[in-house]
Every structure is written in C-alpha cells, then in structure tokens.
Design a protein around this nucleic acid. Structure first.
Length: 591
RNA sequence: GGAUCCGUAGCUCAGCUGGAUAGAGCAACAGAUUUCUAAUCUGUGGGUCGCAGGUUCGAAUCCUGCCGGGUUCACCA
C-alpha cells in the first residue's frame, strides 16, 4: 500500500465532505520535534473558508480519525495538522515492501533513453574530473532504468584531431620504439607521457623563436613542432598509411589502458562511438539547413545560423574551407544516435563549461525540425576542484584516476586491517573487500553532491570512512548481515509476512524512511541526480543505526517481535543494496 | 561588457515545486562497549541562510537590484 496516496485521497474526501472544496493535497513528513508522521498544512484554506486554522485542522483530523483506519491520533499546532498513523498501517507498509521483489523499481514506461558519458580524449589518461563524469553517467543510467526506461549507455571517444597528433608526433620523434610492454607503462599513461613531451618541446621552440625576435603569437604558429603536427593531421585525414598505422597502434594502447580503468571502477557501455568515424557527419545537415533556409552562407563561404530569437547569437556551423567545426560533428552524431537506436531521449553527461554549446546544439536541432529535440538534455555537472584550486595539467596538479583509485584501495586496506574484523578472510576475499570499500568511498564522495554544483575534492575528507560516507553505508549493511547470519545459525528463518506487534518509535521511523525509497528513485530520475539517492541511502543507514543502538533483536524473547524486527532489517539491508547499486556501489556482507 | 550558474555553521554539504524553532557530516568538547560489528550511538557548543528591497498569513526557498566568485561568449574541441 502507498500510505501517502491513501492519506491524500482521504484528506481530499474530508475537504469535500466538510467544506465542499476541491484542493490539491500536499503532505509533508512531520518534523521530528512534533508528534506525528505526516503533516497537512491548512493555512491555504483559511481565507477561502473563513475559519480559523485550528478549526479547519481539527475538523479534518477528527474526520480522518473516525472515517478511516489510518489514523491513530492527531494534534494541531497553529495551522499544522500532525497525523499519527495507526500501528496496523506500519505493518501493512512493511508487508507490502517485503512482498514486492521490485520495491523501488518503477513500472516500465516504454521509453528508451541514451546516456552518453565518459567520452575521453585518447591523448592522456583519465583524471579526477573524468571520474565524476563516469560515476554520474553510470549512476544516472541505473537510476533511469529503475524509473522504467530502457537505457543505452554510450561513450563517444575523441580519438582524432590535433591533440592526438601531438602525442603521435612526439612519440615518433622521441619514442625509440617504446611500448607499454617494454616500458611497463599503462597504454593511456604512455600516450599521455608523449603528450607532455610534445608540450615541453613545443614550448622550448616557441621560446627560442621569441628569443630571435618573433612575437609570441607568431612563434606559436611557426614553431616547427606545431607545423609538423598539422601536417600529420592532414596526412591522417588523407589516410596516409604510415600515419594511420601509428595512430592505430597508439590508440590501441590507450583503449587497453582505458578498458582496464573502466573495469576497475565498474563502468561499462553498450555502444562506443568513435569520432574518427563520425567527424565527417553533419555536413549533410548543413546542406539540409541551407536548403530550408535555416542556415545562411556568408561571402567567404562559411555557413551560419542566426539564433538571436532564441536569445543566443549567430553561430558558425561550417568553415569557409568547407570543413567541420565541433558543432557540425555534434549535429551529425545526434542524428546518428536517434537513427541507430529507437530512443525517446538522449542525455549528454558533459561538464558545465559546455553549457553554451549544448544550448546551441539543441536550438539548431529544433530549428531543423527534429522532433526529438525536446528529448535532448545536457546533464551539466560542475568542476571538481582541489583545495589549492583548479586542476591544471600544465602545472601538474591533475589527480590521476588510476593513482587515486590505487591510493584509495591502500587506505581501505590499512583502515580495515586496523579493525581486525576480517583476520580470517582469504587474501582474495580481502582484496575484493578493499576494492569494494575504496570504490564505495570514492563514488559516494563524488556522487553525494548535487551534480550541477562544482565540488571540492579534499583528499583528507575523501579517505574518511566515517560519517556521511560510502563505507558508513557499507558498514551498516554488513552489520545487518551479521545479525541475519546469527539468526540463521540459530535456525531462525525470516518470514516474509509478519504479524502485528507492539512497535517502538525507532521502528516506525525506520519503516517510514523505507517507505520513501520509491519517492527517492522517482525524484532522482526526474532530476537526473544521483545525489538524491546518496542522501536517501545515508538517511536510511543512519536511521537503522539509531534503531540498532536502541533495540536488540537476537535477545528478544517474544518470537513475533523478533520476527518483525528480522523482517524489518532484512528489508533495510535489501533497500540499501538496491539503492547503492543505483550509485554503482557494492555492499559487503562483512567488513 | 553580454549570457549563465553559484553564495546556508570554522570546513564540506543537505534543505530551494513557499510552511513550524534552518539540518547533517567533519573538526572541538562530554558520554556510551560483560549485550546482534564502536567504520556505531547519545549529548554540548557553533547561523544577520552574501546584502537591500518586494510579493505573501508565512521567504533560505519566488521577484528585482546590488556585492562577491565560477564558467562561457573561436572559422579550438
């Protein structure tokens, strides 16, 4: 049963019967300082009914108490009607949750959505910012699935362009045939190494030219290294055998490196697009737009669109020389996505520095008459900053994803070993646990903050496993499993249907929080926000721990009470597991 | 300068579709373990919700202006 809906309709009925009014009923959880579970605010009715708030509230309360079975009691404070649910209701709710294998999974909505995330460049390894992106994308995919969508996870790899040629050229010049195997360096890091080497080399060339009297601007254009890279790009586009072979070789190293990282952090894709395949797309859309008069050509041959009516500006969609710009490609790939899959919506998980780009992209799609344009959404997330400021690759302040994960695993190991609770684990099981805790901590840390907001990554906080953290939630799950193991070892099984018993406040609170899980899933889906799930899960874990500190289960002599509590904590552990799964976090049965 | 996002406790963040005395975690301090995992729990202190107006019975929440900060405004991606 959904008590909230039942209550709402009962109140609606009361309003109609008592005052002959039709009103949308909004309920809120009662603040903990007051007695009650749900609160109805009556101020809005005062003017209309010309009665005092207290009179209205009392009348409704009395009506509910006599005409429904949900309400044990009520109290009125100012215009707030606080409703205390009848004991039976708690058992109904819990039985409903226990009987529903798919608790928190919304029915299929026959809609499908594509979530594009990660989308790395193949010239350097993943860093902390990518982790936020990957965790967000993966989690949002899971959340949308739980909201009834079919989800296609995609990754658009930026595997071509000037920046890729930079690492290629530097490797050609200074690589001496080094490979991941010969150097022991992970492929993506190896490519990144040469990207850095290029940058150094290029800078020294620029500096030398400036010494000779060239302006900085000129020097940057004329440095031999950058010219060589530009030539290389042209050769690549012409399909020059040697260039393409080098490109393929280095990209393969990078992909191998990325895959290793993806596997370790537990993200995956259903479909990978490569920009090397798609970068030419979009030109036919430019043609289309020109024909329909949505785009226009300037004297030099460049193609533009006027988006002033949309509150934007004029925007270039094709260069004078006929080559694509960034947005041209995106026009093409967007069409491709909707063509390849029968999707109703497409989501791009991309940092907020591209807000303008996506505004323009969607506006153009709409003008081109693509009826899917309204289903396009830019999940724009804020930057991850360090205590000393922004991450800057040039200043070496970038936090590398692989290094960070490894450090977290080490910390998890040290912290866990210290407690001495898993001394009997095999090394293999222990390693699985350390990784689970490390990633739980990291993912939770990055996901608990509203995606839209920029966030601070403080290394000291991120390795904390106490308080509002992933490991706290994992620990709570392990605690529950420990009790269930104890019950099982005593031959006590957990019934999936429980009897009504005397119930304590910490128990009703726990059931209340449990009952809100589907709301959290819905809200997280509507807002594309894993932080809603993270905050919910923390609330649930915290409420359980309060209950745990107060109420014993295995020492309970009343078997009905014990059964009730076992069923309750089982539901809690399962809900924790389901909720954390939506965040891409696993929970252990011991830790 | 235009556009856009943000500003809540010492720090990191919730709350923002208007509701009661603005909540958590960390840090500080004081307690709880012969009892199901103390990675836990209980308590104490800590706030002009950037500032000023406005709308309303009621504003952290909505509107306007200002102050402070981020991002963006390439024939780069």
């Amino acid at each position: 049963m959904n008590i909230e809906l039942s209550l709402k309709s009962a109140i609606k009925q009361a309003l109609s019967a008592l005052f002959q009014v039709e009103e949308e009923v909004i309920l809120q959880p009662t603040k903990s300082d007051f007695e009650g579970n749900y609160t109805y605010v009556v101020f809005a009715l005062v003017k209309q009914l010309r009665k005092s708030p207290a009179d209205i509230a009392n009348a409704i309360g009395e009506y509910l108490k006599t005409n429904t079975t949900y309400i044990k009691n009520y109290n009125v404070v100012q215009g707030f009607l606080n409703l205390v649910l009848a004991d039976e209701v708690w058992f109904d709710i819990l039985n409903g949750i226990l009987a529903d294998e798919n608790f928190g999974i919304l029915p299929k909505n026959n809609q499908s959505v594509m979530v594009e995330y990660s989308s790395p460049n193949t010239n350097k390894p993943l860093h902390l910012g990518h982790l936020r992106n990957n965790f967000l994308g993966f989690s949002v995919s899971k959340i949308l699935e739980a909201n009834g969508y079919d989800v296609v996870k995609t990754c658009l790899v930026n595997d071509r362009g000037v920046h890729i040629c930079k690492s290629m050229w530097a490797y050609q010049q200074f690589g001496n045939g080094e490979t991941p195997e010969s150097s022991g360096i992970k492929g993506d890091h190896l490519a990144g190494k040469y990207y850095v080497i290029f940058d150094k080399h290029y800078k020294s060339e620029v500096a030398a030219l400036m010494q000779e009297g060239m302006s900085e601007e000129e020097a940057k254009k004329n440095a031999p290294a950058i010219k060589a890279v530009q030539e290389m790009l042209i050769k690549w586009e012409q399909g020059d055998k040697e260039t393409v072979a080098l490109w393929r070789k280095m990209n393969d190293w990078v992909f191998a490196g990325f895959n290793e990282t993806y596997q370790k952090i537990g993200v995956s894709f259903d479909k990978t697009y490569y920009e090397s395949n798609t970068y030419l797309l979009g030109k036919d859309l430019v043609e289309e737009g020109l024909l329909s008069g949505i785009f226009f050509k300037k004297e030099n041959g460049s193609v533009w669109i006027d988006l002033k009516e949309e509150g934007l500006d004029e925007k270039l969609v094709l260069r004078a020389d006929g080559t694509s710009v960034y947005i041209t490609q995106d026009l093409g790939t967007t069409d491709l996505k909707f063509h390849d899959f029968h999707i109703n919506k497409a989501i791009w998980v991309v940092g907020n520095e591209q807000d303008y780009h996506f505004e323009v992209l969607f506006a153009i799609m709409k003008k081109l008459g693509r009826n899917y344009a309204d289903g396009c959404y830019h999940l724009s997330y804020g930057m991850v900053e360090l205590p000393e400021g922004k991450m800057k690759s040039r200043e070496g302040t970038v936090v590398d994803a692989d290094d960070l994960v490894d450090e977290m695993i080490e910390t998890a190991e040290v912290t866990t070993r210290e407690r001495g609770k898993i001394d009997d684990f095999t090394n293999e099981d222990a390693d699985i646990l350390f990784q689970m805790i490390a990633l739980g901590a990291l993912k939770y840390f990055l996901l608990k903050v509203d995606p839209k907001k920029k966030m601070l990554f403080n290394p000291a906080d991120s390795i904390s496993f106490e308080g509002n953290t992933g490991p706290f939630i994992q620990y709570t799950h392990a605690r529950i499993c420990s009790i269930l193991r104890k019950a099982s070892s005593q031959g006590i099984s957990v019934n999936s249907r429980i009897k009504n018993v005397e119930i304590a406040k910490s128990e009703t609170e726990l059931i209340f929080v449990l009952s809100e899980y589907p709301n959290a899933v819905k809200k997280a889906g509507d807002e594309y926000s894993p932080s809603v799930i993270a905050n919910y899960t923390y609330e649930l874990a915290k409420t359980f721990n309060q209950f745990y500190a107060e109420i014993s289960i295995m020492n309970e002599t009343d078997t009905d009470k014990q059964q009730f509590r076992l069923a309750l904590i089982k539901a809690v552990s399962e809900t924790i597991r389901k909720a954390t799964a939506l965040l891409g976090i696993e929970v252990p049965i011991r830790m």
